[in-house]
């Protein structure tokens, strides 16, 4: 089990969505992230939306049918987005740096996963 703490990336989180949710990969790894980070993905937000009354929302657990390495990259983007979307307009979003952190070996898988996650 590799519990990745993303808390330091979401320092500006509002109190209301400050709870932790679990994101499960296909191959059994689970990641704990703040809800604000999970909300960066529209699909995940819908899954966790308590109004939907889904099992995922009640258990606060999102299964993602991808390998752990993909899920980790997804979550990296999500915390990247959660952090920089709240940043001021002056602040430069280091997209280039993020791009360089994506190895080409997984980029197509990541592309499909991102398309599914609607982000």
């Amino acid at each position: 089990m590799a519990d990745v703490d993303m808390a330091q990336n979401s320092g500006t989180t509002a109190e209301t969505d400050n709870d932790w949710v679990r994101v499960m990969s296909d191959d059994g790894y689970s990641f704990l992230v703040r809800r604000s980070v999970a909300n960066a993905s529209e699909t995940m937000r819908d899954m966790l939306d308590t109004a939907g009354n889904y099992a995922e929302a009640i258990a606060r657990t999102c299964p993602v049918s991808q390998r752990a390495v993909i899920v980790e990259k997804l979550l990296e983007y999500m915390s990247f987005k959660a952090y920089y979307e709240k940043a001021g307009p002056k602040e430069e979003v280091p997209v280039q740096e993020f791009m360089e952190r994506i190895p080409p070996e997984i980029v197509l898988e990541l592309l499909l996963a991102a398309d599914y996650q609607n982000m």
């Binding site: 987005k81 994506i102 080409p104 070996e105 980029v107 197509l108 592309l111 991102a114 982000m119």
Partner: peptide
């Protein structure tokens, strides 16, 4: 905000000359 999809597409474009780098992906994918 740049979506992950567009970022991935940019990465694909950057490595397009080296298609092997993307590994094997099925026709369905």
């Amino acid at each position: 905000f740049p979506t992950l999809v567009t970022i991935c597409i940019d990465v694909v474009a950057r490595h397009i000359d080296d298609v092997e780098a993307f590994g094997d992906i099925g026709t369905l994918n």
